[in-house]
Structure formats: C-alpha cells, structure tokens
Amino acid sequence: MLAEFLFRRVFYSCIALLGLVVAVFLLARLTGDPSVLYLPDTATAVMREQFREAHGYNDPIVVQLGRYVWNALHLDFGMSLRQNVPAMDAVLQAFPWTLRLAGVTVLLAMIVAMTIGPLAAYRPGSIFDRIASVLSLAAASTPDFWLAILGILVFAVHLGVLPTSGTGGFAYWILPIGVLMFKITGTTTQVVRGSMISSLASPYVKAARAKGMPENRIIFLHALRNSVISAVTVAGDQTRGLINGAVIVESVFGWPGVGKLMIDAITQRDFAVVQAAVLVTAACIFLLNIILDLIYAALDPRIDLH
C-alpha cells in the first residue's frame, strides 16, 4: 500500500511538473519574440536574428516544444548569459544556501510553536494567551521586507551589533532567520494553539483526567500528540509562505540562495536562470508535499498506508 501511494503521488507530481514546464515554454514563446526575454534591450535586430537562429527559435513550435522538454528532462535550461555557466549549475550552487536558511528557520519555528502553542491553549484568554495571539496577528500583518529593513536599521546601523548582509559566521544568520521566522512562527503557533484547544476539550482528554493522569502528561503526551497532526497538515501551506519570505529575505540580506539568484536574474534579464530557478523550486515543493503526506500518515495511526 505504501509503495502504491508513493507511486501514485510521484506520478501525479511528475505530470504536474511536466505541465509546468510546458506552461513556462508556452508562456515564453507565445508572447512574442523570445529574444526579448533573453537579450538586453540594447541588442540590435541583427543580434536578435542571430540569437533566434542559433537557438532554433525559428523552427516550428512543436519541434521547439519537444526540444525544450527534452532539455528540461536533462536539466539543461541553457546558459546563463550573465555568469557564463549553465543555468542549472548556478541554481544548484545557490540551492544549499536556501536549504540551510529554510531548514533552520522551520526547525526553530516548530520548537517555538510547540512550546508556546500548548501553553497558550491551556489557559485560553489569559494574559499569556492574549499576548501570544496579538503577536501572531502582528506577525501575520507585517511585511517581511519592511521588517528586514527595520532589522538592519536597528541592529546593524544604529546598534552596530550585526552585519547588514552577506554570509559568514554565526552573526550573519541571526537577522535573516529572525525575519524569516517571524511570520511562520506566528501562524504555526496559532494553528497549534487552536488544535490544542480542541484536543484539550476532547473526550479522551477528559477520560485521561478521570484516569488521574497529571496535567503535564495530559498536555504534552495526550493532547499535543494529536495536535501535531494538524500542525503538519498546515505545514504544506506554510512552505509557500516560507519560500515567498525566503526570496525577500535573501534579496535584502544578500543571502546567496535561489531567491536572490532569481531576483538578480530578473533584473539582469537572464531568463535561462529564471526558468531554471522557478522549475527547480517547483520540483522541490512537490517533493516536500509528498514527504509531508508521508509524515502525516506516519503520525496518525488511523490512516492505513502500511
């Protein structure tokens, strides 16, 4: 059953990914002269014609599509015109940076949410709970680029304790992770809190209390275990926010990840890199969703996959 589930999910994801590749292709080709996308505005008509010939843009669409898909399957998205390396290489080099940033952020966010959430849920309406809710609300309403800039202003410019951008030692991680964490932690905490409130009100918790189980055990063993399941359910939505946030955080803090690569490629009109970055990210998202489904199934014994 597990193999069947995995196979089905991977299959559908591949189809979706393929669809995405085709969609990008169509978007790029059908909206006019593709050389506009690749070459800078200063390119002359002759250069554009040469470019088109060299890359086969004058061939029939179907042939182009076939070639494009074939290349995509080999992870060949062309050359980055700025950096003179294959676009894919540029993406693969930037990828680990984003992974590190996102990974640490998610880990910290989960830890914070699983600590504050249950405590807030235990006494709903208490001062602690209300402060936590207000902070979460503020976090959900704050534009992350503004927060990033404010962070730089306060900590780097005025207080001088943290660097403004780039990578390096531990200090370089603090602001980027802090800003990225803010919104995610807020949302996740609220989700865990909501789920804990209903867990704590459920009949099995009442039964556990009647069994004489101490409060700590009830909160962290009986109720939280059930709430983790719903936290994982929304984790999928959270990854979207994470990626959006990562793009901005990387741009503002000069973090050499895929997000910064993408934005730079846009300003530099480096379409090959833009394509590669977007498609690789999409593939990762699909993969992540599959992993989340597996985690979810592993956590909830009522789901029969094995």
Partner: peptide, 18 residues
Amino acid sequence: GDRIGMIFQDPLSALNPV
C-alpha cells in the same frame, strides 16, 4: 484515578486514537 474508576459512555471517544 487511583481509588475511583470511570467507565465512559462512548468508548471510542474515551480512548486516545494515537
């Protein structure tokens, strides 16, 4: 918990599913 035992009406919801 120790000296008084409680048997609940709906056993499915009285048992923790996980």
